[in-house]
Amino acid sequence: MEITSKTNQKVKQWVRYHQKKYRDEDQKFLIEGEHLIEEAIKHAAIECIMVRKGVKHAFSSYPCYVCSDDVMDKLSMSVSKADIMACVSYLKAPMKWGNRLVLLDQVQDPGNVGTIIRTACSFGFDGVILSDQAVDLYNEKLIRSTQGALFHIPVWRQSLLEALEICHNHQIPVYATSLHKAVTLSDMKRVSSCALIFGNEGSGVSPELLAKSDQNIIIEMTAFESLNVAVAAGICMYHFRKD
């Protein structure tokens, strides 16, 4: 099917997904670019493909809408404007609890969260849990920052206090990054299971969660007291990576 008008009902529906409230309402979001679509096909439910007129693609087995330049430019949120996009259903929370988890406490920057998800996937972690106050999982910048890892590792939103209770019930040790009462990361033994808590870019891990931590950890540095949360998370996840 070809779409040439920006006022087409399908276009209006897709444009709504630029806003969180409409994504949540329909449980759908948009992705841009061939690479993300290829990754989504492996683990997600793709509703349809939108492609710029004249652009060839390899996704003919899915419902496809051939769109004019005006329509694609309206749908795309990237600076370079995508030639191909897809509408995807929200991802489902995992049915089983993993042994190696990353918990993000009110982390707000979508680029940071996307990078952490990608790193967690790369180092063999089983899932990433976002607190209720963390950035929206389906933010366009966050999705782009994951480079497709979002479709390879479970990521879901949950009360972190509830998540920590489950971790303790499963005898999963909990480690939080903090400057207070902490041991250096290099002194921590690698373990087969763990839950790592990383906090808000400005305020760090909340006191309520620190009180539930089995051990606070700090990354030894020669200058400054703190690192960008995505950098700190990457260093810690590498230390506790899955062999």
Rank of each mutant, 00 (worst) to 15 (best):
I3W: 02
S5G: 06
E25M: 12
Q27D: 10
Q27R: 15
K28Y: 13
L30E: 00
L30H: 01
E34Q: 09
E39D: 07
A40H: 02
E47Q: 15
I49W: 03
V51Y: 00
K53M: 12
K53F: 01
V55F: 10
P63G: 04
C64H: 07
D70L: 11
D73R: 06
K74W: 14
L75N: 04
V79M: 05
V79S: 06
D83E: 13
D83F: 07
V88H: 08
S89T: 12
L91N: 05
L91Y: 02
W97K: 11
G98Y: 03
N99W: 13
N99G: 14
D109G: 06
N112T: 07
A120R: 02
A120G: 01
C121F: 13
S122L: 03
I129R: 05
S131M: 02
D136N: 12
D136S: 06
G148C: 08
L150M: 11
F151Q: 01
H152K: 14
W156D: 04
R157V: 10
H168R: 13
P173H: 09
P173C: 03
P173V: 09
A176S: 08
A182H: 04
V183P: 06
L185M: 06
R190Y: 11
C194G: 10
I197P: 01
G199Y: 05
S213H: 01
N216Q: 09
I217L: 13
A223K: 14
N228H: 09
A230I: 09
A232K: 10
I235R: 02
C236H: 00
Y238I: 11
